[in-house]
Computed example of a mutant assay.
Amino acid sequence: MHWLMVRRSCPAWLLMVLLFALYIVSAASAHADGGSGGCNVLKDPTCTVSVGGLGAGGSGSTGAGGDGGSSGVSKDPCAVYPDAVYGDRPPTVSRACADELQGKYCNAILGDILDGLKYPSVNNLTPAQAVLVNGNLARSGCPVIVTTATLAQRAFDSIVFPRPSGHRSPSEAQRYNGYPFTYVGLWTYYWTDPAIWRPLTATASAAGLTATVTATPSSLSFDPGDGSGSQSCAGPGRPWLESDGDSAPSEGACGYRYSRVTGPGYGHPITSTQTIVWKITWTGTGNSGGEIAALSTSTSGQLNVLQIKTVNR
C-alpha cells in the first residue's frame, strides 16, 4: 500500500531520485558497520580507539566497556590507521593516537639530545644539564622533562640573592671633596650587614617529586681597587670599634691597609668592591641531590685614600 501511495503521488523522476538516495543510505550503513553493527573507522577514527577495553561482542566502540578485547582488535591506538587506506592523504587520527605518535617522536628526540650531548640518563642529569636538555626539547615542540634536577633548578631560579651592604670604615657616608674616603697606612675595616649572612632556601614540587635548594654564604671578599687583588674573609666581618684603634683586624673583623694615596687632588677616586660567594646544594625525592655552581653577588663604590697623620673615625 505504501509503495502504491508513493507511486500515485510522485512523478517518475522524483521516484528515481528517492530510490537512488535509499540505495546510497543502505550501502553506507552496510559499510559503516561491516555487517556487524560497528562503526566506520575511516569516517570516525575515535570509534575504534580502545584505551579502556573493547566493547562487548568485539564491536570496537569506546563507549561500550567490555571484556578487554576479546574480539582480537589491537589496543594500540594507532593500529587502526593503515596508511594504504588513505593513499597520499594523511589520516585524521584520534587524540589518543596523536598523543601516542607525539610521545614516540619526543622520546626519540630526547634520546638524540642525550646522545649528542654525551649526557647520562634523564634521572642522572644535573640541574644545569636538565635546563639545556629542556631547552632543546622545547625548540623541537616537545614537552619538558620533570625530574628532581629540573625542580632544583626551578627552586634555585626563585631565590633572590642579596648583595653585600658594602660597609667600610670610615663610614662610606662620610665625604671629602664629594667622595667617601679612608686613610693611607691605617687599617680599613669592611663588612656586610649580618642579616644578609644567612642561608637561603627554596623548594619546588611537581609530578610527585620535590627538590629543595640551600644557598649558604661561604666567604666575603674585598677588592680595594688599588690593583693589589682581593682580600678574603670567612665570615661577614664586623664594624670597626674605637677599642680596635689601629690594630690588625681580630674577632671576626676583616680589613686592608692602603699603601698609597689617590690623587692628584683627590679628583680620581678608586673603586672598591665587596663580594659574597654563595655555596649552593640541593636535595630531592629518592635521595637525589648534588651541588649547583657557586654564585657571587657584589657591591661597588668609589673612595679616595687620604694622607693625614691624625685620624678621627
Rank of each mutant, 00 (worst) to 15 (best):
N177H: 13
Q153A: 12
P11L: 15
E242A: 13
N177M: 10
V41M: 03
D115V: 08
N124R: 08
V49N: 02
A294H: 09
S219G: 01
P143M: 00
G65L: 15
P90A: 03
D246F: 10
G111Q: 09
T201Q: 14
L306C: 00
F222N: 01
T126I: 07
A293E: 03
V41T: 06
Q231H: 10
V305H: 02
G52E: 10
A138Q: 08
A215W: 01
I276D: 02
G208M: 12
E100F: 11
G135T: 09
Y190R: 04
M5Y: 08
G52Y: 12
L101E: 09
A30H: 13
T148N: 01
V6N: 13
A64N: 11
Y119P: 00
W191E: 04
G235I: 06
I270T: 01
P180Q: 03
T92K: 15
K43A: 15
K118H: 12
E172Q: 08
L200N: 05
L14E: 14
W187R: 08
G227M: 07
A155S: 07
R95E: 10
G63S: 09
T92A: 14
V261C: 02
C254R: 08
A204F: 03
P120Y: 04
S243M: 05
T297K: 12
T192A: 01
G286K: 05
Q231D: 03
G284V: 07
S250L: 06
T182N: 06
P224R: 06
V80W: 13
Y183I: 09
A248S: 05
R313M: 12
